[in-house]
Design a protein around this nucleic acid. Structure first.
Lengths: 347, 347
DNA sequence: TTGTAGGCGTTATCAC
DNA sequence: GTGATAACGCCTACAA
């Protein structure tokens, strides 16, 4: 960090025999306000260019109590869903001359805490977090420190923090209904993190769809522990090892779907003839699978934009907008991974 | 940022009727060095806990000329290759109590410049960048400011900056030879950013493999403009609209491959019977394509680790380790997207 | 064993 | 029109 050519206001002011204040004001475009002569202003601007002056934002932040940085924490940056959200958040932030600290919590609350502490001591202006979801004390603590927080993706019930995400209940219900409509009765659900509200919502949507169609819920068909590929694989493997008679699996995330497909392939089963598959999270690559996978699409850009705007407003107004809960609609993208059992029966 | 319970050394020292220095020293574990009595130390530590003291890293950074932050710039965070690299860099950084600023340059040098400026004014300790690749002045400028930089993925010829990436030439050559070995003669190359060294290396590997096997290079078969899906799609579409007689396409990135597959599907052609496909960048989802796609795998974790360690060393020693160029080997992951024309001929 | 004072680079307030 | 000074919160050389 010891820059050779690092220039400061002091250096420029000494070189020009002017006071630091004058230089600062001219550089910050306040010449008119402070009636600094055009000549002086010009001289200062030129010197700043010559010395490649670049304000030290650390010093500015300290003085102004505003760092123009925001923190973003996601459970898994390698999941394209979160990567896309991060990208859009950065795009929005850039328009406000803010930059972002990133942390991948790896679905581990401990890492989430570490990141929060580090971000907080760097005085971020605000935080957008897709929480792991099984604990929330550290978040409410940060909120008490008056750092605005917006939660995305995984809603936390206990907290009164603004949230932006999808309407998981409806999305899940619609998908399950679609499966039922295609003649499936024994439908398994390969779920994500059990205790998380997001997962609970998706489970509830699944259950309600079954109930409303007079299908009894078999809790043995609800499997899985987490949102990652590994959990999806293991749960599916377990499921397929039993004699359950299932004809379709609904998975709670793209990563779970990947793991499920792996298990299905290992069992030498074919989608959709032997078993149908439907998953949350749309990705461009689903189009190219064999067969293309039917999915529930979330509005990622909208989630990112709304979250950023909400945070931005909270930062500006310096107040916590508690409990605004935005749930965006999802869209069922129909491809070829669900077998139409009704059609077949008619033949 | 106006924290209600924000506590500072001053506050604690006033509350305890001790000097700021004593409090600072005790909190920083320097009690022994400065012979602060156990009693005082204890009192201070307890007060710090009570007030939830958390050092202001902005102030510390300013004073110590070290921010414990590093910047990471990638051309496309939604590309799993870069997402994985970012994740491993963060993992390494976390062990050193460093946090990272992220920027997605969106393959645009202008955004890269904006990020660099913002990072530099925040006094990052170092920068890891996967550059867009067609310009490098802004990078050398930053380097002159004495901020350590490590380049990853896309090597920049003109610069004397340390680089960590794959041996693209060999990887590309091996892949092309594999195609030739399977009986392919008319092989197209759907390339990335034309002027980038990385792309040039991959093109060179492709050309040399052809040459060494006595196959003349047809420049009409080298298409594409950039590393993204869109470019891959358009180039493949163009290619397939001509009567070239190609039997295989080699693509320079996973995103290009996705676009190429889209174009192939639109043309109602089948992989590998109508056309074979081989791509750079391995992903777990390639296994599930129809057919599974043969790829050239890069050692992402190793790239991230080596880059971080190199940067870390440069930061510690406060010197620029110019021109160390690390090129890691790649691995051909054979799946089912390449047709064995030789075998067929024998039948 | 603890305290004082200066400075990191800015900006805001007050003075001339 | 411009300048001096204090303050943001922290660390450290030097005092005591």
């Amino acid at each position: 960090m010891k820059k050779i050519t690092d220039s400061t206001l002091t250096q420029i002011s000494k070189h020009l025999n002017l006071s630091i204040s004058t230089v600062s004001r001219a550089i910050n475009g306040q010449s008119k306000k402070y009636r600094i002569s055009e000549k002086t202003t010009k001289v200062i601007i030129e010197a700043a260019k010559k010395f490649k002056y670049e304000p030290n934002e650390l010093a500015r932040s300290l003085r102004l109590k505003k760092s123009n940085t925001i923190g973003v924490i996601v459970p898994d940056i390698t999941n394209p869903f979160f990567a896309v959200v991060v990208r859009w958040i950065e795009n929005a932030a850039r328009l406000n001359d803010k930059i972002i600290f990133i942390s991948d919590s790896n679905n581990d609350t401990e890492f989430e805490k570490i990141a929060i502490k580090a971000f907080s001591s760097r005085k971020i202006d605000g935080l957008i977090v897709a929480p792991v979801g099984n604990e929330s004390f550290h978040l409410s603590e940060m909120n008490q420190l008056d750092i605005p927080i917006v939660i995305i993706d995984r809603y936390l019930d206990k907290l009164n923090l603004p949230f932006v995400g999808s309407n998981n209940y409806e999305g899940s219900k619609e998908a399950t209904k679609y499966l039922i409509g295609k003649g499936h009765q024994k439908i398994a659900f390969n779920q994500g993190l059990k205790k998380s509200k997001l997962n609970l919502d998706r489970v509830r949507g699944y259950c309600d769809a079954l109930n409303e169609n007079g299908i009894a819920i078999n809790h043995n068909l609800i499997v899985g522990e987490n949102f990652n590929e590994q959990s999806g694989y293991e749960a599916a493997k377990f499921l397929l090892s039993k004699n359950t008679g299932i004809t379709a699996i609904f998975t709670a995330s793209n990563q779970i779907a990947l793991g499920t497909i792996k298990a299905i392939k290992e069992k030498k089963l074919h989608i959709p003839n032997d078993i149908s598959l439907l998953s949350f999270d749309n990705q461009s690559y689903w189009d190219f699978f064999s067969p293309p996978i039917t999915t529930v699409e979330q509005q990622t850009k909208k989630i990112a934009d709304k979250a950023y705007n909400l945070l931005s407003e909270m930062i500006k107004k310096n107040k916590i907008i508690g409990n605004s809960k935005i749930q965006l609609s999802t869209k069922l993208i129909k491809r070829k991974s669900v077998k139409d059992k009704v059609k077949k029966a008619w033949k």
